[in-house]
Structures are given as structure tokens and as C-alpha cells.
Design a protein around this nucleic acid. Structure first.
Lengths: 224, 224
DNA sequence: GGTCCGCGTCAGGAAAACGTCAGGATTCCG
DNA sequence: CGGAATCCTGACGTTTTCCTGACGCGGACC
């Protein structure tokens, strides 16, 4: 089912969107502030985000930037402001669409449909297959020998970065930045631990990896 | 250059868009009605379409449908109408975005950037090919006979500097500066060792190099 | 013909990077 | 409040890489 994350501090609007989204077959995930929104987003796969620019703890643009940092999920921005500048900022931050309050529910739902329709072909091949295992980037699912493999959030995050750069070398710094944050530069022991765990769960022979390769001194590389 | 097809019957608006798009580095292609728009679209490759819903010869939604029939190019719809229903129709017809007149040029350009960013997900990395091997600078990948060649960080660094200066002579000093640092001037034995290792891994006949050439007394040169 | 200089080759030890493991801290959830 | 899952951290042995010196070869020059 398509999961839609709705971020707004207006309880009444949240309730209205929950009802309408549920009626159209979506699964709404609700958050009242930016912090819990980013938490929900990292916790479960989200297919689309609707975010209000006016939030109690942070600006909605920051939420957009926080999401765009590691995902290409479509984002629709809501705002009561009529200032054109805020539209530009939000769109340049990575938002896909912009709706000014007050808006009609039909229009918002149409924009939701449009955004989801665009998003489907966007990941050109959301499923990456190797002889040993399969990674479904959209569903955040890894299967091996037909059985689902259970990954922790950090393990998945590391694997996701590598798979999104299939065949390309990913430097330790890039991995640390994308998974742990920009303040991490030299904690390469983190990588060693999690790469080892991924190999233990995915590689046929973890001591002789065939898909999660180490390039000593440079980084790691995923090859199908 | 990115080609943007603009379809509108308002000469003044067409002129404004032509100027602004040109200023931002796009190549505008102008059409005043739906028929000539579809003609231009079939005549040359178009990267993005901006179409007004109010056209003299046909409805803009028909233009969108006509384009969507055989292309996935991003489409932004313009309209002076405030009717919500028309937005729904246009978006469901396949439009990617919708802007209501009057609009600010900054907002429209921001939406253009957003649409193009969505449409171009995979920037290709520069690849240099020789009869013996290929170097993918973006992926940090070297292939020979279809198999990946493993390079150490220093080997890769030396090769990268040479390949980025394909055909040009790179002095020993420049190589030492770029790979080992500005304090290295005369340690040419480093170069001899690593050039030899690169030849052993890449050249068909390492004793008679064809791509990593020595210029005695000067430096080294890479030729495809 | 002899000498000198630059280049290619090889091998071995020092240093850095990596894989592995286990224990403790933290968070999450009932 | 307790248990489980996850994350972080440090230590140790192993692998890889880097530097270094020695030697041979060939051309330039005297």
C-alpha cells in the first residue's frame, strides 16, 4: 500500500487528510512536527511526503532538505504564505510541488496522483538482482533464496547507498556522510563493522565477498 | 543545451520567456498554437514543455495528451483559469506541474529546474577508452578485457592525473605534486615504481608500453 | 671505449588499512 | 520496569599498501 507521510501542526487538517487519504486507498502516516517527521521517514518506507512550511520546531524547507539528503521520494509542500520567494526556496530545496492554502481536497489529491505517477518510473530499476540476493530499493526489502533477509536500519542504509551506486566506488567519507551525517569523517571502523554484518547476511561466502567489495584505502563497491 | 518548448498565444509572454530562458542557459523553442507546437516537438528533440491551456486552435490538455502519447518529457501547464477542475484534468492528462497566471518568472524557472532535475536522474560519468583498457573516472573503475582491474589508491591517483591530461605531457614534478603533495620534487623513483605497476596491470606488453608513455627527462604521457 | 645519468625491475620491511569478535551503552517497545 | 534489538567501541591478528634501496640496462656524452 502506498504510504503518504503528512507533516502538519494543524490537528484538524491532519485528521481531514487522514480520512481522505484512507478513503482513496493510501496509508497515511502522520507527524505534527519536523523532528518526528524525519524520524518516521527513516523508520519506514514512505512513498510520498506532504509537508507544511509552518511547523513548530523547524522550517518546512529544512524538512525537505533533510529528506532530499538521502531519498528521492516526491514531496508536496503546503503553505498559507503567498510569498513567491518561499515557493522558490521550497522547490529548489527539492520539493516536487507546491500548494497554497486554502486548497481544495480534490486538487491536492490530483497533485498526489501526479507526483506518484512521476515517481514510479523515476527509479529506473528499483530492484537490483545478484546471483546471491535481491535488493528492492522501493520496498526496502532484501531477499535471499526466496526468503526475506532482516536488516537493521543502519545496515539497510549502508546497503542502499552502495546499491544506488552500483558498480561505482563509494568512498568511506561519502558512506559516512550519507549514513551517519556530515560530521563523520574518519570513523571507518563503523563501516568495517556494518560491511561485515551485511556480508554475513548476504554473501554466500562472507570471507570471500563477491558483491560487496573492498577497495583498500579507497572505499567499497557493490557489483551484481 | 537544454531545449524548452514554450506554447502560448500571448506574444508578450512568449518574448519574456524567451529572454529569461536564454539568460538561464536554456534554448527556447517557441510556438503560438497547438498545431505548430506538436510540429516543433516532432521536428527536434525537446527536453521540457511549457504549455498554456488557452490556445487558439485547441485546448492545452489536448497538446499534453498528444505529447504524452509518445514521450515522457516533463510538461508544465500554464493557465489563467482559476477553476480547480482544469488543474485536475491537466494533471491527470499527464502534466507534471501546473502554474496559475499571473505567476512570477522566478517561480516558473524554479519549477522548470525542479522538473528537469526529476527528469535527469543519472548523469553519466566520463569514460576514456583505449584498445587495451577503459577508465571510468566517475565510478573509479578500470576494466580490461571486461574484467575489473584492482588498483591501489596511489596507482589510481597517478592514472587519474594522466588520464585527465590525455595526450598532454605531464611533468614529473606535476605528478609528484598532485599525488604525493607539493613538498615532493625529485622523488622520481616513486613514479618509476608506480608507472611500472600500472603498466603491469594495464598494458598488453608492459615492456613495450603503448598508452602510458615515458618522455625521457620530462615526464609521462597518456595516449588512447 | 668508458663513464654518467635516467629509467625499469625486483624484493623486503614498515606502516596503514582491514576483518573479526565481544562486551557495554543506548534505544525502543511492551 | 524489564527485555530485546541495535548501535558504538576497543582490541587483536591479518592483509594490503607504501616506501626504500639495490641492481641491470641502454643511450648520451666525453
Amino acid at each position: 500500500m502506498t504510504r503518504v507521510l503528512v507533516v502538519d501542526d494543524d490537528r484538524q487538517l491532519l485528521r481531514a487528510l487522514r480520512i481522505n487519504l484512507t478513503a482513496r486507498g493510501y496509508q497515511p502516516v502522520l507527524a505534527a512536527d519536523g523532528g518526528s517527521a524525519l524520524g518516521e521517514f527513516s523508520r519506514q518506507p514512505i512513498d510520498l511526503v506532504i509537508v507544511d512550511l509552518g511547523l513548530p520546531d523547524m522550517d518546512g524547507v529544512e524538512v525537505v532538505e533533510g529528506i532530499r539528503g538521502w531519498s528521492k521520494v516526491p514531496v508536496i509542500v503546503l503553505s498559507a504564505r503567498h510569498l513567491e520567494q518561499s515557493k522558490v526556496l521550497a522547490l529548489d530545496a527539492g520539493a516536487d510541488d507546491y500548494v497554497t492554502k486554502p486548497f481544495g481536497m480534490d486538487e491536492l489529491l490530483a497533485r498526489v496522483r501526479a507526483a506518484l505517477r512521476r515517481a514510479v518510473p523515476a527509479p529506473e530499476s528499483p530492484v537490483v538482482t545478484t546471483p546471491a540476493f535481491t535488493v528492492d530499493l522501493g520496498a526496502r526489502l532484501v531477499t535471499r533464496n526466496g526468503a526475506q533477509v532482516r536488516l537493521t536500519p543502519t545496515e539497510w542504509h549502508v546497503l542502499e547507498v552502495l546499491v544506488r551506486n552500483t558498480g561505482r566506488l563509494v568512498s568511506q567519507r561519502q558512506l559516512l556522510h550519507e549514513v551517519w551525517g556530515p560530521r563523520y569523517e574518519s570513523e571507518t571502523n563503523y563501516l568495517r563493522v556494518y560491511i561485515a554484518q551485511l556480508r554475513a547476511k548476504l554473501e554466500p561466502d562472507p570471507s570471500a565477498p563477491r558483491h560487496l567489495l573492498t577497495e583498500p584505502g579507497m572505499g567499497y563497491r557493490f557489483v551484481p
